[in-house]
Structures are given as structure tokens and as C-alpha cells.
């Protein structure tokens, strides 16, 4: 099996049995947006807008490179956006415009 074949057959999240360093008992208190992101995931699953399995697939579909550099909930929200585009629920333009509005609102709120 070529290296390319192996890469196709192993999802980036399928790491059981791979070599890895020592377990460090790290943890952090979730930031408010992270908790909202988790709640959003649950609500999306309740409505089957994005079910839990779609979320898992969407996170894996970000690929190993992004998987390495994004944090847990950063992966989730990026995956949600992609899945919502794929399902025709949102368009990239709609989300980008809304993100500009959200950012402008924040700047206005802090008087920057």
C-alpha cells in the first residue's frame, strides 16, 4: 500500500495505536464562545440540522493539517460552516457578510 493509499484510508482523527508523547493532565475552563459552540452543536443535533456523526465527519474532513493547528472548538465551528454550506443552508457569502457585521458591532461596542 502506497503512502497516499494509507493517507486516504486513515481518517486524521483515527489515531488509536499511533506513537505519541506522555499524557500531560492539561485542562482549561471553557471560554464563553466555546461553551456556546458546544450548546450550538447539541441544538443542531437535536434538530438534525447537523447530526453528531456529521459533525465528526466534518471535523475529520478539515484534514490533518488543520487538525494539528486548530483547537477543539475551532475545528467544530469551521466544520459547522462547511457542512451548512454543503447542505445549502447557508452560503459562504452570507456567512462572510455576517461575520463582518459581527466584527463591526464588536468594534463599535468597545469604542475602537
Amino acid at each position: 500500500m502506497s503512502q497516499a493509499d494509507a493517507m486516504l484510508k486513515r481518517l486524521p482523527n483515527d489515531i488509536g495505536g499511533l506513537p505519541a508523547g506522555p499524557v500531560r493532565p492539561v485542562d482549561h475552563v471553557l471560554e464563553p464562545w466555546e461553551k456556546r459552540c458546544h450548546a450550538l452543536a447539541d441544538v443542531l443535533d437535536f434538530h438534525k440540522i447537523i447530526n453528531t456523526e456529521e459533525k465528526r465527519r466534518g471535523v475529520a474532513a478539515l484534514g490533518a493539517e488543520l487538525d494539528n493547528v486548530l483547537s477543539y472548538y475551532e475545528r467544530w465551528i469551521a466544520a459547522f460552516a462547511n457542512i451548512l454550506f454543503q447542505k445549502g443552508i447557508l452560503t459562504p457569502e452570507e456567512l462572510a457578510v455576517k461575520m463582518q457585521q459581527v466584527e463591526a458591532r464588536w468594534a463599535c461596542d468597545v469604542g475602537a
Binding site: 471560554e31 464562545w33 456556546r36 459552540c37 450548546a39 450550538l40 441544538v43 443542531l44 437535536f46 434538530h47 440540522i49 486548530l70 483547537s71 472548538y73 475551532e74 465551528i77 469551521a78 459547522f80 460552516a81 451548512l84 443552508i89 447557508l90 452570507e94 456567512l95 455576517k98 461575520m99 457585521q101 459581527v102 466584527e103 464588536w106
Partner: peptide, 28 residues
Amino acid sequence: ARPSLYEIMETAVRELLIERHLIGAHEI
């Protein structure tokens, strides 16, 4: 601090879905 790209994305996705009545703010 200035919200990260991801926090902005989370807020934008949530608000768009609420505006379209796909989910409710009270559910979150």
C-alpha cells in the same frame, strides 16, 4: 479581548440560524 475569528464565526453562524428560525436563541 478582540474576539477571535472562531468566536466571530460562532456568533455569525448562530445568529444566521436564529434569524432563519432554524434554531431558537432560547434553545442555546
